[in-house]
Design a protein around this nucleic acid. Structure first.
Lengths: 228, 228
DNA sequence: AGCATAAATAATAA
DNA sequence: TTATTATTTATGCT
């Protein structure tokens, strides 16, 4: 996201598949993991049924229709989506970030990755599909009307405003620190509670704890080196 | 490879028509001279390259025709090539390796990368183009006649699975981090030692350091921007 | 569903 | 070209 020179063309397209690993030194035996067969090929998908409490993902499913959901349709869309994304020169990360800016549900890079690989349950896919569908349509329209519209829509460079640095009140810090002393890893619920109680955004609080833990770690590290 | 999932029929590839965007990089970074080592056994290549060490790359050229070479044509092909490559779910590495197997000149992943980015001289491009053209045509034909023909042509083992994500024990991380603090660039010997000591593959340890350096760099970057 | 980060691909340096 | 770095994708957790 650095140079953003005029060459915003569909360059920088992301990798698609695994190629040979250029590693030297193939040390000892590889722990050949039980293949998760994240693949559509029909090679014996049975037997792998590790009883999962969760629904199987689409690519683990052989049927074409589940719960009234047409999997083929989703598979086709996933493929097309990926291709269109690449054609526009977008990364999963960019799409994810763009989604979080526009209205409607947002999804992370991970979620998009999993959608493209169909490594999600039919239900989830069914839910995400329309969101991506709509977004992609819009993105393509923008693309056709010129690069600027697209980059603008995606929210790259142009309007990447940085969040203002939060400043905590002494009272808030006191409470946060007190909490931190009891528990450096507050649960999601606790974080939400604190955020609400103090009137800060949840994410701000979460980050505060991250940073605090980091600071603690650094302190410990320095002390162990006799630097403090 | 995992990309098998991403295969899309070539016909689905929207040509992304026109798009020959004339935007010519107001260059950000001073590109290094495109000097390639004249180590190739193909003497003509050597001639071609040493003959003008400082010749500008295509993307540094504004003209459409240089030395009787139609740059627009090359640009269009480069774009189309990339898209077709992605549509077939191939990586630059795979193409490079496949080329080295078939008869005719071979090119490395780096060479293909540069061709796609037009970060080569017109002469070099002119020379590579037909090779890639011929190869891609063949690959697409194979693709149409079925996956097997393609994977065969490419010389990949159909079931190359991504390595399972390693999870390090806290103890291992502690040792690794301690090491990292002393030296972010351990020597090969040190890496081997650590791998042995911790019971992980050497390559895994090497990659850990790569990623760790990356993370550190990102942190520094963010801190300098006041983001942490 | 998302974070953190391992692994893989693309780009650049040597 | 090969070796490394920079970027992106994918996955183990929870």
């Amino acid at each position: 996201a650095t140079s953003a020179t005029s060459t915003v063309t569909a360059s920088q397209v992301a990798p698609l598949s695994n190629a040979t690993n250029a590693s030297h030194t193939s040390h000892t035996s590889q722990k050949r993991s039980p293949s998760l067969s994240p693949r559509c090929d029909d090679s014996s998908t049975a037997d792998l049924l590790i009883d999962s409490p969760n629904q199987p993902t689409i690519n683990q499913t052989s049927s074409n229709v589940v719960d009234g959901i047409n999997l083929d349709e989703i598979k086709d869309f996933a493929k097309a989506f990926k291709l269109r994304r690449l054609s526009l020169g977008l990364t999963q990360t960019q799409v994810g970030q763009a989604l979080s800016v526009t209205e409607g549900p947002a999804y992370s890079q991970s979620a998009i990755c999993r959608f493209e690989k169909l490594d999600i349950t039919p239900k989830s896919a069914q839910k995400i599909k329309p969101v991506l569908e709509r977004w992609m349509k819009e993105a393509e329209d923008r693309y056709k009307s010129g690069q600027n519209h697209l980059t603008d829509f995606i929210g790259i460079e142009p309007s990447k405003k940085r969040k203002r640095r939060t400043s905590f009140t002494p009272q808030a810090l006191e409470l946060l620190n007190a909490h931190f002393e009891r528990n450096t890893h507050p649960s999601g619920t606790e974080i939400t509670g604190l955020a609400h109680q103090l009137g800060y955004e949840r994410e701000v609080i979460r980050i505060w704890f991250c940073n605090k833990r980091q600071a603690l770690k650094n302190t410990v590290r320095m002390m162990s080196k006799g630097m403090v």
